[in-house]
């Protein structure tokens, strides 16, 4: 019994220790951000690696999520004779929730894990140490551009996800389910509020982008420099990102719409 409590206590202390180290790490990375103004190329490279290379999975997922949403929504709305409001249901679901949340989950699995593995392997192969010995600060050269790129890429990816989701839903609604094209768009236009729905979705994406990128770069930098250590760090990135995004989504939704 004592062992159980001791183990629990040890894990709790370890968790707080990691959180403290992660916060210090974040502050050091943020201190490296101003220097990026002079070297926008570093951020551009990472925007390509994190954002552009994630486009395919985001576009395909967004389209299918929108199409499924249309099918499921139609089945519910038709029983109330409200199937012409399908556009509203799809748009609000995507802009407020599914766009930011699913994009962040996909981001964690695709770009976040790649960031962790890349930085973890740079540490394992002493590339970060060699950079330090060349008087180049890895926090400024490696970490800060990736953190900023993740923060900037997420809202753009979420916007593309939501846009393609709405287009997918439109195709299914009008071509397969018989929803009127004009009703689909006009009801959406009337019901969706730019500040309330679109901007709150963008704020969610920015928060998720910041947290997901922070977790990914920190886990890579803090990885035990062995193949097993990098493997564990990559797993932790996906798990922690998913939990953090879902938890934060509840908090943000409660604050924005509660």
């Amino acid at each position: 019994m004592m062992g159980l409590f001791a183990g629990l206590g040890r894990r709790t202390i370890d968790s707080f220790g990691r959180l403290g180290r992660g916060t210090m790490f974040l502050l050091r990375a943020l201190a490296g951000m101003p220097g990026l103004l002079l070297r926008p190329g570093l951020v551009m490279q990472q925007l390509y690696a994190i954002g552009v290379l994630s486009l395919l999975i985001i576009m395909v997922s967004g389209t299918f999520v929108g199409m499924v949403l249309a099918l499921q929504g139609y089945n519910t709305l038709v029983t109330f004779g409200a199937e012409q409001s399908l556009g509203v249901l799809v748009a609000l679901s995507l802009l407020r929730e599914l766009g930011p949340v699913v994009t962040a989950l996909l981001f964690g699995g695709r770009a976040g894990s790649a960031l962790t593995a890349e930085i973890g392997l740079m540490k394992t192969t002493e590339q970060l140490s060699s950079m330090e010995m060349m008087a180049v600060d890895p926090m400024r050269r490696i970490i800060a551009p990736r953190l900023l790129a993740g923060f900037l890429a997420m809202p753009l990816l979420a916007a593309i996800f939501s846009f393609l989701g709405i287009m997918g839903a439109h195709v299914v609604s009008t071509a397969a389910l018989g929803v009127d094209d004009g009703a689909f768009w006009s009801q959406m236009q009337a019901a969706v509020d730019f500040r309330e729905d679109v901007m709150n979705g963008v704020i969610k994406s920015l928060v998720f982008g910041f947290v997901a990128s922070w977790i990914a770069v920190y886990e890579g930098y803090d990885a035990v420099p062995t193949s097993e250590g990098v493997s564990r760090a990559t797993t932790r990135t996906v798990v922690h990102t998913s939990l953090a995004v879902l938890g934060l989504d509840f908090v943000l939704t409660a604050v924005m719409f509660g």
Binding site: T125, Q127, M133, M134, A135
Partner: peptide, 19 residues
């Protein structure tokens, strides 16, 4: 420290080249 390191080179055992 970083100014000093500009005047120090280090050869790592693995080479530590950027892959």
């Amino acid at each position: 420290l970083y100014a000093l390191r500009r005047r120090m080179g280090m050869l790592f055992q693995s080479g530590a080249l950027f892959t």
